[in-house]
Computed example of a mutant assay.
Amino acid sequence: MKFSTVINIPKAPFELQPCEQMLFTGSCFAERIGTRFFEEKFRAMVNPFGVMYNPASVLHTVERVERPVDTLAMTLGTNRVYVEKSSGEIVDNCQKRPQSLFYERELSIDECVEFLSRAVEKALSRNANTKIIVTVSPIRYAKYGYHESQLAKAVLLLAADRLISLFPKIAYYFPAYEIVNDELRDYRFYEADMLHPNAQAVEYIWERLQPALLSEKARQFIQEWKPIKEALAHKPFNPEAEQYKTFMAATRNMAEALQEKYPEMELHLPEQ
């Protein structure tokens, strides 16, 4: 007997390696997933210029991040954009200027594909081996109305599908939207606002993501890093106790040994 609809998640046409240089840009859902990668010692930049909800703003982030990345992850939230009347340019943030200086419009599927394709091409111009992950945020936008929010998601889903077809060997759609709306179809997986997925939902998505995207080496690294991460998160009653100092010295040795095994790992240990 089954009590949920389990989404079939195909493997990506590529594999993520331990400690890869990654850029996550998009809605606040990108921040939740990107932070999870960061916690597992992937060298992840997460929305370095703030949350970007639409494909045009996602492109703007990719253009501004000059450093090449191994993986670009784009999470699409809405197809609605704000345009500055005087310049006709799409802005990422109104910077508290009067609303009268801007007007709002919706991007078409073709426009979304155009902005996202330019983002991919910009990433590839810096690293020809960049891998692309695309997701659609499961977060509904009450501001626009729930039906209107679903229409926006439909545009983004179609645009994401088109983008994958344009870059089939390097681009992959991960069904976070479908997992939340089909597998986790229960308000116990949401924050108090009943819109944002909670920590349990994010952790479930992380578990479902690993077999589809991570290499065996990356998953092995995560298992080796786990006891060190848990030890570093330990909060002692008495930091000056000899027992705790011995515990931290052993943890430091484990961490340094792991860094020797994975030289690309960025290790920031607390002061002794």
Rank of each mutant, 00 (worst) to 15 (best):
A152L: 05
K153N: 07
K153E: 06
K153W: 00
K153Y: 00
A154F: 08
A154Y: 04
L156C: 06
L156A: 01
L156G: 09
L156H: 00
L157P: 00
L157E: 04
L158R: 07
A159T: 12
A160M: 10
D161H: 14
R162E: 11
L163M: 10
I164V: 15
I164F: 08
F167T: 09
P168M: 03
P168V: 00
K169V: 13
A171N: 02
A171R: 06
Y172R: 05
Y173S: 11
Y173N: 13
Y173A: 10
F174Q: 06
F174N: 05
F174K: 05
P175T: 09
P175W: 05
P175E: 06
P175G: 10
A176S: 15
E178Q: 07
I179Y: 02
V180S: 02
V180F: 00
N181H: 14
D182C: 14
E183N: 00
E183P: 04
E183I: 07
L184V: 11
R185W: 01
R185A: 15
R185Y: 11
D186Y: 01
D186G: 11
Y187A: 11
R188C: 14
F189M: 03
Y190N: 04
Y190S: 10
Y190R: 12
Y190I: 02
Y190D: 07
A192P: 00
A192D: 14
D193E: 04
D193P: 01
D193Y: 07
D193N: 05
D193A: 02
M194F: 11
L195Q: 04
H196L: 13
H196N: 13
P197C: 06
A199M: 13
A199P: 00
Q200D: 14
Q200A: 15
A201T: 12
A201R: 08
V202N: 09
V202W: 08
V202Y: 13
E203Y: 02
E203Q: 12
E203L: 10
E203I: 13
Y204E: 11
I205N: 06
I205C: 09
I205P: 03
I205Q: 09
W206V: 11
W206R: 12
E207P: 01
R208W: 00
R208S: 09
L209S: 04
Q210R: 14
P211H: 09
P211G: 10
A212R: 02
A212K: 04
L213W: 00
L214I: 13
S215W: 03
E216W: 02
K217H: 06
K217T: 15
A218F: 08
A218H: 03
A218D: 07
R219E: 14
Q220N: 14
Q220T: 12
Q220G: 03
Q220A: 15
F221R: 01
F221D: 03
I222W: 01
I222C: 15
Q223P: 01
E224V: 05
W225F: 14
K226W: 08
P227N: 02
I228R: 01
I228M: 05
K229D: 09
E230R: 04
E230K: 08
A231Y: 01
A231M: 03
L232W: 03
L232P: 00
A233E: 13
A233R: 11
A233D: 14
A233V: 02
H234K: 14
K235S: 10
K235T: 14
K235E: 13
K235I: 15
P236I: 08
F237G: 10
N238H: 10
N238E: 08
P239R: 09
E240H: 12
E240W: 10
A241I: 07
A241Y: 03
E242W: 01
Q243Y: 10
